[in-house]
Simulated assay, not measured.
Amino acid sequence: MSAMVRDMPEDWRPLAQIHSHPGFDTEHSRYDDVMTSSRKILSVVFPAYGKLVASWPDGLGVHEWQVDYWHMLSAQQVKTRLCLEGVDSVDMRDFR
């Protein structure tokens, strides 16, 4: 993650980090809470190892740091906070 952020253009900032869970539970685990790279970004969890199981963005767990805890946003909050507009390509990097 630090390499990715270091290599970003000077005027870019990370907005979210993404990871997947093996099943359909998209709630943050304690490990997820600790491993999140920043409390200033959204943490997005894809179910089923990243397989899109519903129409975007349904089925995702989107978490935001609020009042000393990672809260999972409601489906309505996700639709207003997580959108892709004017995207020609996505820079995807696998850090396994």
Score class of each variant (00 low, 15 high):
26 T>K: 01
22 P>A: 14
51 K>N: 11
39 R>Y: 02
73 L>R: 00
89 S>G: 09
92 M>G: 05
68 D>N: 14
76 Q>R: 15
18 I>E: 02
22 P>V: 12
68 D>Q: 14
83 C>K: 15
87 V>T: 14
19 H>V: 06
64 E>K: 10
51 K>G: 03
30 R>T: 13
23 G>M: 06
12 W>Q: 07
13 R>L: 04
55 S>V: 15
38 S>E: 09
43 S>A: 13
40 K>R: 15
86 G>M: 00
76 Q>C: 06
58 D>S: 13
82 L>W: 08
54 A>P: 02
41 I>L: 11
87 V>Y: 08
45 V>Q: 00
7 D>R: 13
13 R>I: 07
84 L>K: 12
49 Y>D: 11
92 M>V: 15
36 T>V: 12
58 D>P: 00
41 I>N: 04
47 P>M: 05
35 M>I: 03
82 L>A: 04
11 D>F: 07
47 P>A: 03
9 P>I: 02
75 A>F: 07
37 S>P: 03
44 V>G: 01
70 W>R: 00
73 L>N: 03
26 T>G: 02
58 D>I: 00
12 W>H: 07
48 A>Y: 06
29 S>R: 10
13 R>C: 03
53 V>L: 05
85 E>D: 14
59 G>W: 09
31 Y>Q: 09
38 S>H: 07
56 W>L: 11
20 S>D: 06
58 D>A: 10
29 S>M: 08
73 L>W: 04
19 H>E: 04
4 M>Y: 10
40 K>Y: 12
2 S>C: 05
71 H>I: 06
68 D>E: 14
91 D>H: 09
37 S>F: 08
84 L>S: 12
4 M>H: 09
22 P>D: 11
95 F>P: 00
72 M>H: 05
21 H>V: 02
11 D>E: 12
21 H>F: 04
55 S>T: 15
81 R>A: 06
3 A>M: 07
15 L>C: 14
70 W>N: 01
71 H>G: 00
45 V>I: 09
54 A>S: 12
88 D>G: 10
17 Q>H: 05
33 D>R: 14
9 P>C: 03
2 S>K: 13
43 S>Y: 05
